[in-house]
Simulated assay, not measured.
Amino acid sequence: MLQDVVRAESFLDHNQSLQLLEANEQLLLSSLVAQADNQSALQALDEAARTVGLDPLTKLANRTLALDRIKQAITHAERQGTWLAVLFVDLDKFKQINDSFGHAVGDQVLRRVAQCLLATVRQSDTVSRHGGDEFLILLDNLAKIEDALVIAEKIEEALLVSGGEENSFEDLSASIGISIFPRDAETASDLIACADQAMYMAKRQGPGGISFFVDDTDPLELSPRQVLDATPKQALQERSKAMAQQLKRQSKELELLREAHQQLLLSLESTWGPQTTVQSQSTRQAELLVNISAELNDPHSAIRMAMVALDRAQDEGPLTPRARAMLLQQTLDLRELINVLLHPIRNQA
């Protein structure tokens, strides 16, 4: 009986040891599983943090991130006094690619275009997907505005080469609109809107068109190079102001000339003397008046050139119509005065 009790106690201790060992194994496995889950969660968190603001298809910056980058670039440009450009890129005939080859092929084209754009611009620039087949490119710290056009032309060439890698997309191209800070707009949203409008101007030129934002101008009348060479609006306003001041001075000179003619007429009436004197004075007066008449009728005279300049003024202010009317009236008055003065002299001749 004692031996049975000892065997029972030994059996009980053995079972408890097994249970304790099994519990320890389960605890170790649970700890390993928890550690693996924790590591996976950390990796997922890092991946989520890395991909915030990225387009899931192209891995480019999305709208939100692009808008934030443009705002930061504007702040920097204002502080440094530099230029920046926003390029609005819209693929031509992309709907036909989707309809003909399917959306999977269309997505492949978008990814290829994204890599093409990244390879064309500088590392400091931002390429983003605006939505669908539209992309935005932020060109920061431009040395001159013309650099934006150079980049746009390189993009067109790169897209053509990229499309030629497969025979189906040899004519791959994009319409590109360009807006410039601070020339065209001063906020990020306005810059994007101006670039969007310029892109539609480019589409009117045909596939592969490029256009700067030009306010109140037919985009078909100006090429991108002509837009760069065109006089800025501020310069036009300054030139118009200078022209108005010049016309004002010419008006005063014409008024002095009219007074001189009146004095001459009074002089003629008061100094009428002997016949020889009259003939001598008449000859001198005729020569003077003929010279004045020739000057007024000369298309290269100051008055006529001012009239032509006024007719061609691109930015007429309120003063310009009044100045033109004043010059025209004074010219007519002078001609009438000369005809009156010449009439008795011609009769004597």
Rank of each mutant, 00 (worst) to 15 (best):
L220P: 04
Q234I: 11
V150A: 10
A202H: 05
S31E: 15
L159P: 01
S282N: 10
A41D: 13
H261Q: 10
L160R: 13
R249F: 10
K248G: 08
E78N: 09
Q246F: 06
Q16W: 05
N297F: 04
N339V: 08
A286G: 10
L327A: 05
G132Y: 05
K144H: 11
A302R: 13
P207E: 04
D55W: 02
E253Y: 03
S124Y: 02
L91I: 03
T271S: 15
L32K: 15
N297S: 12
G317A: 03
A244W: 00
D218S: 12
L118Q: 15
H103L: 05
E295S: 09
L21R: 13
L342R: 10
S251F: 04
L265W: 10
G273M: 01
A119R: 08
K144F: 07
L91A: 03
A85I: 01
T231F: 00
C116Y: 01
Q35R: 11
D99F: 02
M243F: 13
G163M: 06
D171P: 04
R69W: 00
Q108E: 12
M326C: 06
Q43P: 02
D215I: 11
L319G: 02
P56T: 03
D140A: 11
E146T: 09
Q19L: 15
Q234P: 03
Q245T: 10
P299I: 02
R258Y: 12
L236T: 05
R312Q: 14
R284T: 13
D196W: 03
A119Y: 02
Q250V: 08
M201T: 09
R322H: 15
D125T: 07
G106S: 00
A242S: 11
F101I: 00
N15M: 14
Q72D: 03
E156P: 00
S168F: 12
Q285W: 10
G206H: 04
S31D: 13
L310K: 02
T64Q: 07
G317T: 14
L266W: 04
